[in-house]
């Protein structure tokens, strides 16, 4: 009996020792991996998450790995699995196209916290969380200012594919423009690509040829449309990251994503042993969405007032958005 007890004790000790090796321990920080579709410095979608993680790097003692440029979903899936195998504590799949892969991979790594966006779907998995941006809020604010600014009453918008975050932003922008200028005609062009910079530039030129004097757009290919706006001296409203660098004379303001607001919750949850199962969102109310103005742009006070009123209205609930 005594021998049996000793044996059990030895097994228990070995098990405990083994657990102490494999179970996540965040005393020395966390290992976080980002998988994202475009370049880390795209001044758009991918940069927004990279900037956010870097903001939290010291606070959470993060060891960060990034695989960017994974437009091909299979490449992203391989990277997601690889990071999970390597023992990363939190794996961020930053792209709504990665959901299918995550749904397959996450159950194989129950001790890893996966988070992805933009989406609200966790697939009912306990180690998957989802995050999204209420980008229609900032879109509405930008649209309100654009509606107040336009002299030709023609506004142009360039989008990638009519899904997810891009659709939300564009819909909000159109609503905001219409709410502030019922006569404004908002032409929206989804070019059908997240990566075709040349096509995005031509879409911008098409808007300008049709009389647009204010433009906006979303996704990483939008640098092309900003170039078209820059050439024609047409005002531009940006989103996802501060795009002032792309056109100091034409960028009026940018809706900037502060994903750190939701990442902080996701990291704290992971530390506390809650690896997923919940949804998060960034909004104007929680400070995850911020409107950053270009101080160098001579913004008409009436347009600025329209923007400020839209921000206040969304935060206090007096402006109800349709999405």
């Amino acid at each position: 009996m005594k021998k049996m007890s000793l044996k059990k004790l030895a097994i228990a000790a070995a098990t405990a020792a083994s657990l102490s090796v494999t179970a996540p321990s965040y005393a020395d920080g966390m290992k976080v991996a980002i998988i994202a579709p475009s370049a880390s410095n795209d001044l758009a979608f991918t940069q927004s998450i990279v900037d956010a993680v870097n903001t939290l790097k010291d606070e959470y003692k993060l060891e960060v790995a990034i695989t960017d440029g994974t437009f091909i979903v299979d490449d992203a899936a391989a990277a997601i699995r690889s990071y999970a195998k390597e023992g990363y504590d939190v794996v961020i799949a930053h792209g709504s196209q990665y959901g299918g892969s995550l749904k397959e991979i996450a159950p194989d790594f129950p001790d890893t916290a996966f988070t992805w966006g933009t989406s609200a779907d966790t697939f009912g998995l306990p180690n998957v969380s989802a995050y999204e941006a209420k980008s229609n809020q900032g879109g509405y604010v930008m649209g309100a200012m654009a509606g107040a600014m336009t002299k030709s009453n023609v506004i142009g918008v360039v989008g990638p594919i009519e899904v997810g975050d891009a659709k939300l932003y564009v819909d909000g922008f159109v609503d905001g423009a219409k709410a502030n200028n019922a006569d404004a005609q908002v032409n929206v062009n989804y070019i059908g690509s997240f990566g075709d910079v040349a096509l995005s530039a031509e879409a911008g030129k098409a808007h300008i040829a049709n009389g647009a004097d204010v433009m906006s757009g979303t996704a990483q290919m939008v640098v092309g449309a900003v170039g078209a706006a820059r050439s024609a001296d047409v005002a531009w409203f940006g989103t996802q990251a501060n795009q002032t660098k792309l056109g100091k004379k034409i960028v009026v303001a940018s809706q900037v994503y502060k994903w750190e607001v939701v990442l902080r919750t996701i990291f704290d949850n992971a530390k506390a042993g809650k690896l997923g199962g919940d949804q998060h969102e960034i909004t104007l109310e929680n400070g995850g969405l911020v409107i950053e103005f270009n101080d160098k742009y001579p913004l008409d006070p009436a347009a600025r007032a329209a923007g400020d009123a839209a921000i206040a209205g969304i935060i206090d609930g007096s402006i109800k958005l349709s999405h």
């Binding site: 142009g156 594919i161 009519e162 032409n187 929206v188 062009n189 989804y190 070019i191 059908g192 690509s193 096509l199 031509e202 879409a203 098409a206 808007h207 049709n210």
Partner: peptide
């Protein structure tokens, strides 16, 4: 490409057909 872009800009191609048109 230019005709499709222009048609989309003018709203002549319904949004639902946008990706197919691309």
């Amino acid at each position: 490409g230019a005709i499709v872009l222009q048609a989309k800009t003018l709203g002549l191609i319904p949004r639902a057909w946008s990706d197919i048109a691309a």
